[in-house]
Structure formats: structure tokens, C-alpha cells
Design a binder for these strands. Structure first.
Lengths: 200, 200
DNA sequence: CCTACCGATCGGTAGG
DNA sequence: CCTACCGATCGGTAGG
């Protein structure tokens, strides 16, 4: 599917509706109504409702992946700095596109089985970045002796939980939020008395 | 509606399906099939699909509320001990009924508007317990100077995030998990150099 | 708890 | 992008 303006508008309207009502709770006609066209007219631009979900989820997955890689590369190998960079980056991606991020977090289960399997793999690889860096910090003694799987799940679900409450333009901006979440996450895993490694 | 065995079985099957596919993604016939009866036969026991969702969500809400109150009362007024008790309690409620807990966390949005409003109010009151105790700790200087709203959201979404990955009978039991999550949460908010207040 | 059935809505196609 | 339409499925009711 070529990427047209209309196509982008459909994805945007769908993201908003999928966030509010879920994929199953949103009909093709709901999406069309948001764009003031007929339900059947959507199919001039997309091949299926499932494809719209896929492009939303896939786009966000790629964004999380590439920007995590960039954030990681920007800070050197210190586990504390690495974790802070991953957390800050994640918050910034979420706040930058809260609707697609929400769909990414909650609706990937509605993907058809092949795509769902691919996404499960990519999500797992993403979570592994957190596990690995936490394990490294724990081994180095700079982090408390936490179970890296539990700690990574804890931090990552806290980050993803943002999609449930964050609204753009609110009291707290993305940068402040990124710092707060990084502070909370660093403290959660740091050994007592350690000085937190700040963001890059 | 009287609480019969059959009624309980329906709620159980529905919890499992709602968790897997969401409320909108689950049909009345899906629930019936899980119980080896006809779709229409369900209506001998429930008045609507919506009522099944409500009883699941309401039951869990009450469980979270009453057991948080009990946990809070069991530990004295020290903010650190209070927060640890709230976290431990939450983890234990979630792990004790992971399927209903998952529906409670994710599907309350599918409630009809009146019930949804009530649940929003009760969820907010529950979150306020966390905010209040965090604010008290921050004021007392035992917690780091975090924004209580942000910190409470962080901790509570991490706790609720358990429904996405926890499976009963796994490597880590509920008690160990409750301790781990309490440790992570305490460290996240404690001021540097403070000795964590343990669970009750 | 069953059979038989209801109107409404679903995702999607045909053919312009 | 529209009208007209498809078969399938939806939540729920009637009447046993």
C-alpha cells in the first residue's frame, strides 16, 4: 500500500478510535464516519481493517526499536546511563504519539496470528534490552540484586502504563516526564548509596 | 441475580475469554461454547453480556478496596510501611485471580456509561491511597521529592502491568513477587540512604 | 437449558 | 469515493 495523505488520515482516525474502544469495538464504519466518508469507501485506500491495525502497530514497533538503538548508542556502556537512556527514550516515543503508542501497547493481541507472532518476537527483543542492561548493572554491583526479568517487567510495564493516563498538553511536559520516569526507574534498581547516572 | 454455581462458572469462562480477546472481541456464543451450552441458554442465568462484565469488574474492585483497607490498617502510619503494604497487597490480589484482575484492568472501559463513571470514581479513590501515602513520605523527607501523582501512577501501572505477563504456577510465586514488587516500588520513591520499611 | 427466530450490524465486494 | 448489496454473526427474546 502506498503511503498517501488519505491513508495517513485513516491511520490517525483509526488510532484514536482503537485507543478509545479497542480494535474489536471499532467498526470500519466508525473509522469512515470520522473522515466523513462511506464505510465502503475506506477500501479504496486500505485492504482491510486488520491492515490498518498492522500499519499502526508496525510503525510504532519500528519507532521504539530504532530510537532505542540510537539512544543506547549515544551514552556509552555504563549500565546506569544505558538504562536511563532507554527509559527516557521510551517515554519520549510514547508522549510523541500517544494514540499509536496506546494501540501498540494494548491492541497487538488483535493482530492475526502470523503478525501477532512476529510482534511478540519483536516485543520480546525490545524487553531484552532492558533485561540485559539491568543484569549487567546487577553483575557490576551498581544495581541492587534484583531479578532482571522481574525488574525489566516492572519498569517496562510502568512505562507502557503511561498510555492509560498521559494526555498531551497537560500539566507535565514530555521532557520533565522522561526525567521523572528515568529517576523513578533508576532508583528502583540502583544499589543503596549509588549515585544515579544521569541521562546523556 | 442470585449467585449460583452456574453463574459463577459463566463468570469464570467469561473472565478467561475477556482476558484473551477483550469484551468486544468475545461473543455470548463464545462464552456459551466454553460451557457446552447454547448461546441463548446463557440468558437463563444472566441478563446481559454487559452484566457479566460488570459483576467481574465490580467483584475485583471490591476485593482491591477491602483488602487494601485491611493491609493499611495492619501496619501503622509510617509512610514507607504503608506503601509497602499497599503494594504487597495489590500484587497478592492480582496473582490470586489473574483473569478477573486482567479484565478489571483492561476492560472497565467497555462498561456502559453509568457503570463506567462509578468505576472511574472508585479507581481514582484507590489510586488516591497511593498518592496520599507517597505525599506523606515526601513531606516527611523519608521519600525522595517526587511528584506524588507521577510516582503513584508509575507504581500503580507497574502493578497493573502484572496482568500482562503473570501466569500462575510459574517460576516465581505470589509471595516472592509481592516482596520483589514492594522492594522495587520502595526503592523507586525512597530518599537516598533511607532504610526501607519492610512489609508488615 | 433447548429450538427457532428477531432486527441490527459486521467486514468486505461489485461495479461504477 | 459512491450506491447497492453480500453472507455471517451479533446480542437478545419467545415459548416451551
Amino acid at each position: 500500500m502506498v503511503e498517501t495523505t488519505r491513508r495517513r488520515e485513516i491511520e490517525e482516525a483509526a488510532s484514536s478510535l482503537f485507543r478509545e474502544r479497542g480494535y474489536s469495538g471499532t467498526s470500519v464504519r466508525d473509522i469512515a464516519r470520522a473522515l466523513d466518508i462511506q464505510g465502503a469507501s475506506l477500501y479504496a485506500h486500505v485492504t482491510s481493517k486488520q491492515d490498518v491495525l498492522w500499519s499502526i502497530v508496525e510503525r510504532m514497533a519500528t519507532r521504539f526499536e530504532t530510537s532505542a538503538t540510537a539512544a543506547s548508542a549515544a551514552v556509552g556502556s555504563d549500565p546506569a546511563a544505558q538504562l536511563a537512556a532507554l527509559v527516557r527514550n521510551h517515554v519520549l516515543v510514547v508522549t510523541d504519539d500517544i494514540e499509536r503508542a496506546s494501540v501498540f501497547v494494548h491492541e497487538w493481541r488483535a493482530l492475526s496470528s502470523e503478525r501477532r507472532t512476529e510482534m511478540a518476537r519483536r516485543r520480546d527483543a525490545y524487553e531484552r534490552r532492558f533485561r540485559t542492561v539491568i543484569a549487567a548493572g546487577t553483575d557490576a554491583g551498581v544495581f541492587a540484586p534484583v531479578d532482571p526479568n522481574v525488574a525489566a517487567a516492572y519498569v517496562l510495564t510502568a512505562l507502557n502504563g503511561m498510555v492509560a493516563w498521559y494526555r498531551p498538553g497537560g500539566r507535565i511536559g514530555p521532557e520533565v516526564l522522561a526525567d521523572s520516569y528515568a529517576d523513578l526507574s533508576m532508583r528502583a534498581v540502583l544499589a543503596k548509596g549509588t549515585v544515579p547516572g544521569g541521562p546523556a
